[in-house]
Design a protein around this nucleic acid. Structure first.
Lengths: 218, 218
DNA sequence: TGGCTACTGCACCAATAGTCTGGTTTTGCG
DNA sequence: CGCAAAACCAGACTATTGGTGCAGTAGCCA
């Protein structure tokens, strides 16, 4: 796009350099493997074979395996952030009311999840949570911070909702915020285990029903 | 019961033979390790060292590592069954109404989870779900059957409830049954990742609020 | 022309992982 | 007590794993 001239980053989305491409390819392969075999069950040899590089090539991009774990998680969390940003933005454009905006967001989220061709691939945070002793303190902390970020994000919404719609039941808003993470992670487990991609969006929609009932009463 | 005579198993709870004790010890250690490091990350060497046996001793009890995985999951599912049986029994003794019986059950479940000294150790089904490519088809099927059993169990309750209390919202009872599994698995992930044992029972209680709202309206 | 990026190739290593064969002790039980 | 079965132990073996070190190089950009 716009090859107008000199040293401008074209269109804000920089095209990835060759090295970045390879790095992304490794991360893609690693993510897939880790979500199906766990981190320890994913060997470097398998990754380099699939990526079409050599061991030396791998260590050019990552100092060691733990750095791969870290990069994997960082990328995953960033992608989630982006997704939520985008969905909230779309939802807010459709409705100004905080409650209805949130309900729309949840519908958009469910739709997005339902449209994933092979179902949700799995949540890195959940995967890492069941292998925490494999990782450095840094990675574990990153994992926890990811969940806390989701809580803060949803909690902020719920605060604005509760200010306008006094809850029909006695409910801790942090817990209600956490419940979306829980239902999503649980829904992913259901979908993956039973090999039914519909279960995850279905659970999100159930959470939506709960929110609606709790604040709107119907 | 009744040690009236001869070849009765004393007290119904047979005391474990030495071999069974060792086997249980291995399974205990393995479960703990697997829930913290994943299956591939759990080495046999580490298990036999902790159990105080040799490698050969291990293979006397399990043909190979996959058999350990199977035994681990089978035992876990059986223990869950037992727990649910016990809690439903207690709940039903306290109230005959299906809805209130279920609500009591959920409270008992939350209390039980809250009383676990170090929080819930983790769900084997969730752990295995994120490492399915490590296991035989048999183990994967067992995992799926476990979730299906929970669904069937809760669904049966919800059917009886819905017959008496027409739901205030349009809700798929299978999905609502699944939601308990989802919220529990998600709650475990929250509790483990954030190192806060209260989060899991809290999520169960939120699910309880939802059920109450959906069928009772308050 | 040189320097940087992004690798390849190969040699080598200690530590495990998982298996297997064949023996030995320990235990329950009649 | 005596003996078969149960419950192990000793040790050898091989493939794999994560990782180190170093030398070399193709391509690109200034």
């Amino acid at each position: 796009m716009s090859s107008n001239g000199v040293s401008n980053p074209p269109m804000r989305i920089r095209t990835l350099s060759k090295g970045e491409q390879t790095r992304e390819r490794i991360l893609d392969l690693a993510q897939d493997a880790v979500l199906h075999k766990g981190f320890a069950g994913t060997s470097l040899d398998e990754l380099i074979a699939a990526a079409g590089i050599t061991k030396s090539g791998f260590f050019y991009h990552f100092r060691d395996k733990n750095e791969l774990a870290k990069a994997l998680l960082e990328r995953y969390l960033a992608q989630e952030e982006e997704l939520f940003d985008a969905l909230f933005k779309r939802a807010d454009e459709l409705n100004e009311d905080p409650l209805h905006g949130f309900l729309i967001f949840l519908k958009l989220l469910a739709d997005t999840l339902a449209d994933l061709p092979n179902g949700h691939p799995g949540c890195m945070v959940a995967s890492y949570c069941y292998q925490d002793h494999l990782f450095s303190q840094e990675v574990r902390a990153l994992n926890a911070r990811g969940i806390m970020a989701w809580r803060a994000r949803f909690r902020a919404r719920l605060d604005r909702i509760a200010a306008l719609y006094p809850p029909r039941i006695d409910v801790d808003l942090d817990a209600l915020a956490d419940m979306l993470s829980a239902v999503a992670d649980g829904g992913i487990i259901l979908s993956k285990s039973l090999r039914d991609p519909r279960l995850l969006p279905q659970q999100v929609m159930l959470y939506r029903s709960f929110v609606r009932l709790a604040f709107l009463g119907n």
